[in-house]
């Protein structure tokens, strides 16, 4: 490609010499674009930075998918999904207490005292049972300490486990499915209908409403007088 071809015929580019007849330096015509270009870069860069930070720091990015390694690779997929155990067999306090308690080692030993007694993976459980030293499970769903949350209230109102925890019965390793941030909480507190089900199905992972979930939800809300509060003090007390 020659120098001639690269020249824009519409510009009066003075050429390599870039000096006018008086010997002064002349900016080439394209430099007129610099003003617009730098403005574009500045605005674009700012928007880009803001978007990147918002998107990057959002709970969708930092919280969803959190799946820490546990001291024992307990599989909900096997115990709940394939063997059909109910959530409440282990999380006994979920209907009556604020916490859906992690079961004591003794609950594991209900079966594993006789099933899989030699399993290498279960060795920490047996050790914990013998010594009384609790297992140190990694907490997956962890709300900030300035948030009050009560499982019992939600379970008794017919909010299914699946609404916040996802298909736990398909999880080899438990991972966080919901962002658990304030706007997500408020979404449901402002409009709980799609997440309400008859209380007897709260732990059912397969349950689907027969008709429109919103319609059923509205009916249940009416029946049980469910009026989720959006006051600050409801969760920040």
């Amino acid at each position: 490609m020659t120098q001639e071809n690269r020249k824009d015929p519409n510009t009066t580019d003075p050429g390599p010499n870039r000096r006018d007849s008086g010997g002064h330096f002349v900016f080439p015509r394209w430099t007129n674009l610099l003003r617009e270009l730098s403005a574009l870069l500045a605005v674009g860069g700012l928007v880009y930075a803001v978007l990147l930070v918002t998107w990057g720091l959002s709970p969708q990015n930092s919280a969803i998918g959190y799946a820490p390694e546990q001291p024992v690779p307990y599989s909900h997929e096997l115990h709940v999904g394939r063997m059909g155990m109910d959530c409440r067999y282990c999380h006994t306090g979920v209907e009556t207490g604020a916490k859906a308690n992690v079961p004591p080692t003794a609950t594991c030993m209900n079966c594993h005292a006789t099933v899989k007694t030699e399993s290498e993976k279960l060795a920490p459980i047996r050790k914990s049972y013998e010594t009384g030293e609790p297992m140190e499970w990694e907490k997956v769903h962890d709300l900030p300490d300035f948030v009050y949350f009560n499982h019992a209230g939600h379970i008794q109102s017919g909010v299914g486990c699946i609404s916040c925890h996802g298909r736990v019965d398909r999880m080899e390793v438990v991972r966080q499915e919901a962002p658990l941030n304030m706007s997500w909480c408020l979404d449901c507190h402002r409009d709980p209908d799609p997440n309400l089900r008859p209380v007897e199905f709260v732990t059912d992972m397969e349950w689907k409403p027969e008709g429109d979930p919103r319609e059923l939800g509205a009916k249940l809300r009416e029946q049980h007088g469910i009026n989720p509060s959006t006051d600050c003090v409801t969760c920040h007390r």
Binding site: S62, Y66, F146
Partner: peptide
Amino acid sequence: SRVSPKEGTRLQIVYDMDHQSYVKPQ
């Protein structure tokens, strides 16, 4: 990172008062 599971320690960007020193169950 959005679509893949996060196996390591939790990504905590703003600490605020997320972890307070009161006694929590379990």
